[in-house]
Write a protein that binds this DNA or RNA. Structure first.
Lengths: 275, 275
DNA sequence: TATAAAGACGCAAAATAGCGCACAAACTAA
DNA sequence: TTAGTTTGTGCGCTATTTTGCGTCTTTATA
C-alpha cells in the first residue's frame, strides 16, 4: 500500500531517495541550492539535507560547497574554482584529448558535444586540416585551432543557467538531414552497461549525435568509471573507441572487450595502450 | 519537462563558491572586472569581493590589479582578437551597456546580436528579471546574470574563424515565427543615413532581428561615428534609441532628430543626456 | 605635492559544518 | 511473534567559514 499511491496518505513526508532525486533535479534547474532552502522546502532538518548533499556529492552528482551545493554534471559547468577536481584532472583531459585527436583524419566531419574534455580534444586538433565540426558546445569554437577548420557550426537551442551548451530541439541532427564521420562525446559516467549523463536533454542530444555519425569516440577520464547517472547515452556496442587516462575496473574492461569497443588508455607517462 | 516553477525558492543570495565562479566567468568574458562593479552586482561589500579576487588570484585564475582583476589567460581563454577588442574602450562600453539596460523592462523578450558592446549590455542586466533573450552571441550567455533570465536561447549557425557569433541560416528569426519586444544591436558604424556593419551575413542577421522586434536599441561607442562599412543594417527611422558615450557629429545628430530617434549619451562623468 | 580611491589588517557577529548520540521506523532472522 | 540490526532523523555541542566594519597604509592621479 505504500509504494504507488502517490497522494497524501496521511503524511506529506517524502521518501529519502525521492527527496534526494528532487534535490538533484532542483540543483540542476536552479544552478545552485542552499541547505537552508532545501530544509524549508522538504521540511526536514538542516542535518538531513547536509547528509543528502554529501551522498549526492559522493556519487559525483553535485559539487558540495559551503552553504549548499552546485550541480556537478561533469559537463557544462566548466573549470570553476569550486571544482578543484577539474584542476587536478586538467592534465588527464589534455592527454585524453590529444589521443582522441589522433583517431580522426583530415577532412572528416565531426559531431562534438559539450564538456571540458571535448574542449581539450578540440584544442588538440592543431595537426588536422579541413575539418567540419558541428557542436552544441559554446566553449569549443574559441578552443579549436583555426587552421584545422574548414567549417564550424554551432547548434542552436536553449541554454540552462550557467551552462555552456545548448540543448534540444535538436535541429537537423538526428533527423537524418546530416550525417558525420565521427561523433566525439564526453560523458558523465561509464559502467559495464553503457555510457551515462545526468541530464536527460543532453543525453538526447548525445544520442542523436551518435545516431548521425558513422562511428563514435567516447571521452571519459578515470573518475567516470562506475558512475551511472540518470540517463543512458549509448550502449557499449554502439561505440568505436573509449579514450581514458587509467585502466577501467575489470568488469568494465571485460564488457568493453565483449562489446568489441576499442579501449585506449593514456596514462601519466604519455604512452598509449590499446586493448 | 520544460521549465516550470523554477525560481522563487526563497533566497536570491548567491553562495560564496558560486559567486566566485561567476566572477571568474565575468572576468574572462569582459576582459576585466572592477571591485566596485562586482560589489554592486552581487550585493556584497567591497571587502568580500576583494577576498574573492584574492582567492581566485591565489588559484592562478585571475590576475589581481589595483581596483579589480584581469583574467589569467589560461587554456580556456586564449587571447583571441575578441579579447583584445574587449579591453579597448572597456569603460565606455560598460557605461553604454548600463544605460541601455535601463531602457528595457522586466519580463521583456530581447533579441541581442554579437559584439563586445552587447556583452557589456548583458552584464548590466542584473537589476532586470524574467527576461527572455535570444542571441547569436557565444559570449553572452556567461555574461548575463542568471537571476535576470527566464529563458535564454542561442541561435545556431556557422561560425567564422575567430568570431564569437553564429550567422545565418537565420532559423526562426525573420521568418515571423517569433517576435520580440526589443532588439539590442551593436553596430560597426553610424552615419547620417543609417547603421552599418562590415559583414554581410551579420547584417542580414541584424536586420532580421530588427524586423522581428517591436523596437530597436542600437549600441555604438563614439569611434563608430562617421564610419559606414560594407553592409547597411537599418535606417535611422527604424530605430527607437541610439546609446553612445559621446555626442555625435552635427550632421548625424540632425539626422537622428529628423528621424525621431532617441539619442542617449553617457559621457565619462556617468550622467545621461537625452536629445 | 595634494587628494581621492583602493587595499591590508584585525575584530566580532552570524551562518554553516562536523561530530557524537539517542530515538523511531523498517527490515531480517530465528 | 519476537529480538536484533540497519537506516533515517533530529538535537546539542564545538569548530570553521564567511562577512561587514573600522583603522591605517598604499596606490593612482591631477
Amino acid at each position: 500500500m505504500t509504494t504507488e499511491d502517490v497522494d497524501k496518505t496521511g503524511s506529506d513526508a517524502t521518501l529519502p531517495a525521492r527527496r534526494r532525486a528532487d534535490i538533484l533535479r532542483l540543483a540542476q534547474q536552479l544552478g545552485q541550492i542552499t541547505v537552508t532552502d532545501m530544509s524549508a522546502r522538504f521540511d526536514v532538518s538542516l542535518d538531513t539535507i547536509r547528509r543528502d548533499l554529501d551522498i549526492l556529492a559522493e556519487q559525483g552528482l553535485v559539487s558540495r560547497i559551503h552553504g549548499g551545493a552546485l550541480p556537478a554534471s561533469g559537463m557544462a559547468t566548466a573549470d570553476t574554482p569550486f571544482d578543484l577536481r577539474m584542476k587536478s584532472h586538467h592534465a588527464a583531459k589534455t592527454r585524453i584529448g590529444r589521443a582522441a585527436a589522433e583517431l580522426v583524419g583530415d577532412g572528416e566531419t565531426l559531431l562534438v558535444n559539450g564538456g571540458t574534455t571535448t574542449i581539450a580534444f578540440a584544442a588538440a586538433l592543431d595537426m588536422r586540416r579541413r575539418l567540419t565540426i558541428v557542436t552544441n558546445n559554446l566553449g569549443l569554437p574559441s578552443a579549436v585551432p583555426p587552421a584545422a577548420i574548414l567549417n564550424l557550426y554551432l547548434l542552436g537551442g536553449e541554454i540552462r543557467s550557467g551552462a555552456q551548451v545548448t540543448v534540444g530541439p535538436i535541429g537537423f541532427v538526428g533527423t537524418g538531414a546530416i550525417t558525420a564521420d565521427t561523433a566525439v562525446i564526453g560523458v558523465g559516467g561509464v559502467d559495464a552497461t553503457g555510457f551515462w549523463t545526468s541530464h536527460l536533454s543532453e543525453a538526447t542530444m548525445m544520442a542523436a549525435m551518435i545516431e548521425a555519425a558513422r562511428r563514435t569516440i567516447i571521452l571519459a577520464d578515470s573518475r567516470k568509471f562506475g558512475r551511472h547517472a540518470f540517463a543512458k547515452v549509448a550502449s557499449l556496442e554502439r561505440v568505436f573507441a573509449l579514450v581514458t587516462d587509467a585502466p577501467p575496473p575489470p568488469d568494465i574492461q571485460a564488457a568493453l572487450e565483449a562489446a568489441g569497443t576499442l579501449l585506449i588508455v593514456v596514462p601519466d607517462d604519455g604512452e598509449a595502450g590499446a586493448g
